[in-house]
Structure formats: C-alpha cells, structure tokens
C-alpha cells in the first residue's frame, strides 16, 4: 500500500518521541493485526491527547491498513479528536437524567461565560468544553467532569465559578511566567 510519505521510511517514527515507542509496544502486543486498529487509536488518543495526521499515517503504515480506512474509523468514533484540547477541560453529561435535571442550563452558562460553544476550545487554549452522552452517574445528576474530577449535583453557578477559578489560576501563572 502506498501512503503519502509524510513520515520518514523505516519502522520507527523519526521524531524519536517516546510516545511512539509506546504505540510500537502496543502494536507488538497486538501482533500487528489489522483488527487492532481501534485499540491502537484508543491508545494514541490517550497518549497524545489528539490524533494528528502524522500519527494516523504512522499507524496506517505500521498496521498495513489503508490510510483511508484509518481516517474513516477515526472520524466515526466520537472519542477521537483531531485538535489538541485546552489545558483545562470541562465535560458536561447530557444523559437523560442530567437533561431532566437541567444539564442544558449548565452548558449555556459555561458557553456564555467563556464565549465558546460545546466541542470548542478557547482561543488562548486554556479551556475546552465537551459534551458526553451519559457518564453513568445518573443518581447524582447533573454531572460535570472538571479536569478529570467527577462532580455530581452541580448547578450552573457552581460549575462556572469553579471553571473560571481554574482558568484564572492558569492565566495568572502564565502571566508570572512571562
């Protein structure tokens, strides 16, 4: 199969990035089987935070799977992203229970406060707002995940306040750094 030669030839990624070695290990573990594509994409998403073109080409080449298929598969599943997420992330659950308990109002509040809509990242790259289809914590609806921490029974006010605090803290740190 011919793959556009955006990465250098050879079996290893030319950048020498440690994360590619981890991908290689995973590939070896799964015996380079074509079936393993989804597993590898999952690992890649976890390691890199997003799937770049270079990364997808590398995976296609290593697995000997057509690049078109790799791209088709990656765009099918919603957990894969193609642009880096912000430094801080806010995932809002919009499952039925959370919907009934007002998840939409939380989304609106966050969107207003940060001037981004769901699935977007602020221009300064500090904050991303994502939407999840049920995190399975329905007993505690509405549920919000701020920087990986699951928080139940939230209100628009508590979420925006906490999110604003985290981002403001990062901004301060950036200002100090520069």
């Amino acid at each position: 199969m011919i793959v556009p030669n955006k990465t250098a030839t050879g079996n290893q990624h030319p950048s020498g990035d440690e994360r590619f070695k981890k991908i290689d290990n995973q590939l070896r573990r799964l015996k380079y089987e074509k079936d393993a594509l989804l597993e590898i994409l999952n690992s890649a998403q976890e390691l890199f935070g997003y799937l770049s073109e270079d990364l997808l080409i590398y995976i296609a080449k290593q697995l000997h799977v057509p690049l078109s298929r790799v791209y088709g598969v990656a765009t099918f599943y919603h957990m894969f992203t193609f642009e880096p997420l912000g430094e801080h992330t806010c995932i809002i659950c919009t499952g039925t229970a959370c919907h009934v308990k007002g998840a939409n109002r939380i989304i609106e509040a966050i969107s207003d406060k940060f001037s981004i809509s769901a699935g977007e990242t602020t221009p300064d790259g500090l904050f991303s707002l994502t939407i999840a289809r049920c995190l399975g914590s329905c007993g505690l609806a509405p549920v919000v995940v701020l920087d990986g921490q699951v928080r139940g029974k939230e209100t628009p006010e508590t979420v925006t306040r906490r999110a604003w605090e985290i981002v403001a803290f990062s901004k301060d740190k950036q200002a100090e750094g520069s």
Partner: peptide, 8 residues
C-alpha cells in the same frame, strides 16, 4: 457497550 443515556 452500554450507551443508553440514563442507564448504568
């Protein structure tokens, strides 16, 4: 692959 929102 329990995807129904509201089911866990």
């Amino acid at each position: 692959d329990e995807g129904d929102p509201g089911a866990y």
